[in-house]
Design a protein around this nucleic acid. Structure first.
Lengths: 120, 120
DNA sequence: CTTCTGTTTTGATAACTCTCGAATCAAGCG
DNA sequence: CGCTTGATTCGAGAGTTATCAAAACAGAAG
């Protein structure tokens, strides 16, 4: 048991310098934009937030479909799929339940592209 | 002279703790999602990148419509408007040309929401 | 005032996204 | 096996977005 849910091609692996330092090229921009787009929906942003802040490093889908969000389980599943396709989370089925965890490298890269340097 | 282009309501001012530390509430998520959505298009991401990395802290629109992007000037103008509405850039007309500059606090906040802490 | 250049707005169209209900798949249990 | 519960996928509807051409707007220069 312990079967990985489908892992789709993950955009934007190696890159990139902070946008404050040099301009993105078109290829890098496509992958990064896909990941930012995945964050561009309130429900998805909250889902990712719940997943990244979960104690134990992962969370059961059953804890996400339990009424905190005002959308139905199919919709939550759809949003989780987009986050998976963006390479920001991974999901794994263990017995009855499915667990999601963040892909920290990917989330980190997004933060660094926004140029935390001159931040603080 | 020196007239500000329309400044629309800017989402997500004060907030938030990194999503790695605690889950976003629904209200915060709406504003942040609008800003991330603005980054969710390759053209816009490259535009913001060009603006944030411009020497002198600003860039003339004429340097953006000059053929680096494979879209027409109206489309670039449209994307710049969305970035303005998201509160990520501001624009100002000085004489013939219009200049754009980044709103650093807003970009910083997005980076910090992604939790630069456990990054590096 | 008229004209010219640079930028934005308008209007239209094609493509995409969010959402749900219904159907399907996965695992455990009688 | 057949049933129940949990999660995803399918199919469809309403709404949104990206893009362009054409029109409108803002300044500068003749």
């Amino acid at each position: 048991m312990s079967k990985q849910l489908q892992i789709l091609e993950s955009p934007a692996q190696g890159c990139c310098a902070p946008i404050t330092e040099e301009a993105l090229d078109a290829t890098q921009a496509v992958g990064l934009a896909q990941q930012f787009k995945a964050l561009g929906d309130p429900t998805r942003l909250r889902l990712l937030s719940r997943i990244t802040s979960a104690s134990g490093g992962e969370i059961c889908v059953c804890d996400l479909t339990g009424g905190d969000f005002e959308v139905t389980p199919p919709t939550i599943s759809h949003h989780l799929k987009l986050l998976r396709e963006a390479g920001l989370i991974t999901g794994e089925r263990r017995g009855t339940w499915v667990y999601y965890r963040p892909v920290r490298d990917a989330v980190d890269r997004l933060a660094s592209v926004l140029g935390g340097d001159w931040a603080a």
